[in-house]
Each structure stands twice: as structure tokens, then as C-alpha cells.
């Protein structure tokens, strides 16, 4: 795990849920014996998206909401790489929704982890797509009136083949989930309950420690069971499930595509055009 430690120290606030995710990703890569040069972390924009600097791997810190297409482009170019997308809920569930939906549907073989803290942190505390109704934030002084986005149901509906939720206060399980997600052949999605001690005083470690539970003995191949679990949410003990909700074998885009299925384009020399090919012309 040490080998994954980046040269730059994380600049997150003390108590930020992102630290746990950094540890889980580093530990998962290390335990799976993936060499740092074969791992790529792509991220969007937001507090969480600064992660690539803090990890010793190839990092690509791109645009707000766009980390998934970048990750897919990398994976399609070089399937030998382990590609992990990492960003926040503002990033992935607002601007990134169409990419999330379509790349999940395509079942591209990448892992996408979202640090879901229900708030825009880096822009100092506006309501995000997962902010609960009634929550007062900087831009909802009278309380948020927009229903929250349900990422797990959305991604399930899209057709993702691996759907999970972790909690930053349960690093052990989060690491296990991340390992399974990386190993999974297809689009793996992990929403992480991630406390923001600065801008979300409501859903912190205490709240989730009280309310979260680990899914056990759930039928991971049952879409409707997964969908039902994804609708669970509340402020009572045992009301917010974590763990792997759904995991099925499904054809990856790369396996179905005639060109990509022939092998890594990175390792394949480009086609050499000859005079004969010009007969395609008029």
C-alpha cells in the first residue's frame, strides 16, 4: 500500500470522508498486486477529484462531470490498464449524468467511485444532487425543495453490472468492495457515504454509524432485490444498506466490439495504407 502513496499530501479538511476512499483504493490496488504504472485514476472537479495527485499511479484530473468518458477512452486504448474514475456527487450526478448512464449501459470495464457527501464542497457549500429535501445550504437558505437523486437506482436502471455502496466509516468493507469492483469485468459503480465535516453537519460519521448496515446474504443477481435495497434510506438504525447490491456477468462493450475484441489497440500497429486501398475512391 505504501507504494501507492503519492508525493503530494492530501489537502482535504480533517475528518473528510475522502481519506477513507484514498486508503481503500490504494489498499485494493496493492492487495490485487496491480503495479502503480498499470493503474490510472481519472477524476473530475471538486474536493474529492484532487485524489490523483495523492496517489502514486498515472493520474488524469480532467473536467467537472467528464471523468467517465476520459476513463473509457483510456481503457479502450489500452485494456491492460486498471482504470478507476473517482469524483464527487456534484460532479457525477449533475453534469456527469449522461456519461454515467451511457457508459454504465455500455458496460465498459472501468471502476467508478463517487464520494457522495450530499454537498458542493469546493464551491463552499451549495446543495448538490443528493442533498435531502429541507436541508439548508448556502444556496437553499430556506431549505432544499428538490428531491435527491438516487444514484444506485439510476445506475441499476442504466444497466451497470456491478453496483455497490460503501461508507467512509467502514474502511474494511469499502476496501473489499473496491477490490471486487476492480476485479469485476464490466462497469463497476460504488457510491460512498462520505461525511463532509465542513459543509454537511447533518450526515456525518455519527449519523451514518447509527443508520448504516451491511447487506448480507442478498441475492446479488436479483435486479429487483437490488433496486428495492437501493430505495432504503432513513434516520433510524439499520436503514441505510451498504455492500454489493448487484453483480452479474454481462458482455462488456470491449468484448462485443469487433475491433476492440481483437486485442489491445495500444499493442497493435496501425493499418498501413497501400495504393490498392485507394480503389475505394471514385
Amino acid at each position: 500500500m505504501e507504494s501507492y502513496k503519492g508525493k503530494v499530501a492530501p489537502d482535504w479538511c480533517p475528518g473528510c470522508g475522502n481519506f477513507a476512499q484514498l486508503r481503500a483504493i490504494s489498499a485494493a490496488l496493492a492487495e490485487l498486486n496491480i503495479e502503480p504504472e498499470n493503474a490510472v485514476i481519472t477524476s473530475g472537479i471538486g474536493c474529492s477529484s484532487n485524489m490523483p495527485e495523492f496517489i502514486n499511479a498515472y493520474g488524469y484530473h480532467g473536467l467537472h462531470g467528464r471523468l467517465v468518458p476520459v476513463a473509457a477512452g483510456i481503457k479502450w486504448a489500452n485494456p491492460d490498464l486498471t482504470v478507476i474514475g473517482y469524483g464527487g456527487d456534484g460532479d457525477g450526478y449533475f453534469e456527469g449524468t449522461q456519461h454515467l448512464y451511457h457508459f454504465a449501459k455500455r458496460n465498459v470495464d472501468i471502476t467508478y467511485m463517487v464520494s457522495d457527501n450530499q454537498v458542493f464542497g469546493l464551491t463552499t457549500g451549495q446543495a448538490s444532487p443528493t442533498t435531502p429535501i429541507g436541508r439548508k445550504t448556502k444556496n437553499t437558505p430556506d431549505g432544499n425543495i428538490e428531491p435527491p437523486f438516487n444514484p444506485l437506482q439510476y445506475v441499476l436502471t442504466a444497466g451497470a453490472s456491478f453496483v455497490a455502496r460503501g461508507f467512509s466509516g467502514d474502511i474494511k468493507t469499502l476496501t473489499e468492495i473496491t477490490k471486487e469492483a476492480i476485479k469485476h469485468k464490466g462497469f463497476s459503480f460504488i457510491d460512498v457515504l462520505s461525511p463532509c465535516p465542513t459543509y454537511n453537519k447533518f450526515n456525518g460519521y455519527d449519523f451514518y454509524r447509527k443508520t448504516f448496515y451491511r447487506l448480507e446474504n442478498n441475492n446479488k443477481e436479483d435486479f429487483y432485490e437490488a433496486y428495492k435495497h437501493a430505495s432504503e434510506w432513513g434516520d433510524q438504525p439499520h436503514s441505510i444498506p451498504t455492500g454489493i447490491f448487484y453483480e452479474v456477468n454481462k458482455t462488456r462493450y470491449e468484448d462485443a466490439d469487433e475491433v476492440l475484441s481483437k486485442g489491445s489497440l495500444k499493442k497493435t500497429a496501425p493499418y498501413k495504407l497501400t495504393e490498392d486501398d485507394l480503389t475505394e475512391f471514385y
Binding site: 490510472v40 481519472t42 488524469y60 480532467g62 473536467l63 467528464r66 467517465v68 468518458p69 476520459v70 476513463a71 473509457a72 477512452g73 483510456i74 479502450w76 486504448a77 489500452n78 490498464l81 449522461q98 456519461h99 448512464y101 451511457h102 489497440l265 495500444k266 496501425p270
Partner: peptide
């Protein structure tokens, strides 16, 4: 064919970054 042009350019950047002319 991606879901929009934003995705197309970002995927192309990813692929060029990974070393395949796109």
C-alpha cells in the same frame, strides 16, 4: 458514437493520453 460531443472529445483525450492516435 458517444452520448454527446462532450463525451466524444473527452474520450478522445483519454485515448490519446493512453497513447493511441484518436
Amino acid at each position: 458514437v458517444t452520448e454527446d460531443e462532450i463525451s466524444a472529445i473527452n474520450a478522445a483525450i483519454g485515448a490519446n493520453y493512453a497513447g493511441v492516435r484518436t
